[in-house]
Write a protein that binds this DNA or RNA. Structure first.
Lengths: 130, 130
DNA sequence: CCTACTGTGTATATCTATATGTACAGTATA
DNA sequence: TATACTGTACATATAGATATACACAGTAGG
C-alpha cells in the first residue's frame, strides 16, 4: 500500500506536520477507507526518507485524534468512526479556520458583506490554482 | 497615550505576538491615526508587565511591515501610508486567512457550496461572541 | 518455536523561538 | 550643557519543538 504523500524538505512546515495534514485529509475525504492497513512505520519512513520515529509520531498523533487504530506487532489501520463523527471531523478543521479568518476580519473592522467578498475572492483564487 | 491591549499570560500565544496582533489591528482599523505617538517602550512594558525588549520587538516588527516609524531618542509613531496601501494591508491578512480556510476545505473535498455554508456558520458564531 | 515482520520506550541531539538584563547612543529642552 | 527622556546592540538564559538511534516487545506464519 503506497500512500501518495509529497513533502517539501525545504519548507518551513515541519516534516511530521506535512505528513499529518496530508494523511488526515486522505482519511477524512474517504480516499483511504476504514480498515485500510497503512504501511509499516519503517516502510513509510523509507518512502519519505525520514526517521521511523517521525512516522511513528504521525501515527500516534492521528490515533489520539481517533482516526487511526494501531496494534503492536500487527500494524496501523484507518479507524472505524461513525459517519456522523467522521463528518464533523472533516468539517471541524475547516470551520475553525473560517472562524479564525472571520475573527481576523472583525479585528480590522470588516463588515459582514466585506467578509463575504473576501471569502468569495479566496474561493476563486484558491480554486483557480488547482 | 494609553493603548488598550489585553494579554493572556496563560495563553499558548507568545506575548509579543498577542501584542502585535492587537496593535496592528488598532492601526489598520484607523483607531490609532497616522502620526500618533505611541508610548515609549519602557512605559508600554510597564503596562503589559513585560520586558522592554519584548515591546521593542513588537515595534520593530511592525516597523518592518511599514506601519510604524521609529526614531531613536524621539519615539515611535504610526507611519503615514497611502489610503490604498493601508486598505490592502488591512485586507491582506484577512484574505490570506480565508485562503487558508478554503484550502483546508478543498483538501477534504468540500464543495464550494459546502464551504459557503461553513463560512456563514463561522460568521454567525464569531459575531455572536462579541 | 523461530524468524521476520509489526509497533514501543528511553534517552538524546539540535535548533529555534521566546524572553530577558544591562550598558550604550541619539534627541530635546530647561 | 546637563538631564531626562527616547530607541538600540549585545550577550544570554530557558523552554519547547523537531528529529533521531537503538534496544525492546508483541504478533503471525512457515
Amino acid at each position: 500500500m503506497k500512500i501518495p504523500i509529497t513533502v517539501a524538505t525545504d519548507s518551513a512546515e515541519p516534516l511530521y506536520y506535512q505528513i499529518e495534514v496530508q494523511l488526515r485529509a486522505l482519511i477524512l475525504s474517504g480516499q483511504l477507507p476504514e480498515g485500510t492497513l497503512l504501511p509499516s512505520i519503517r516502510e513509510f519512513a523509507q518512502d519519505v526518507a525520514c526517521s521511523v520515529i517521525t512516522i511513528r509520531r504521525v501515527y500516534q498523533d492521528l490515533e489520539n485524534e481517533g482516526i487511526l487504530r494501531t496494534k503492536q506487532g500487527t500494524g496501523t489501520f484507518v479507524a472505524s468512526v461513525g459517519a456522523g463523527v467522521r463528518e464533523s471531523y472533516r468539517t471541524d478543521a475547516v470551520l475553525a479556520a473560517m472562524k479564525e479568518a472571520v475573527a481576523t476580519g472583525l479585528r480590522v473592522k470588516c463588515t459582514e458583506d466585506e467578509l463575504r467578498g473576501l471569502f468569495e475572492q479566496a474561493l476563486k483564487e484558491v480554486s483557480g490554482e488547482a
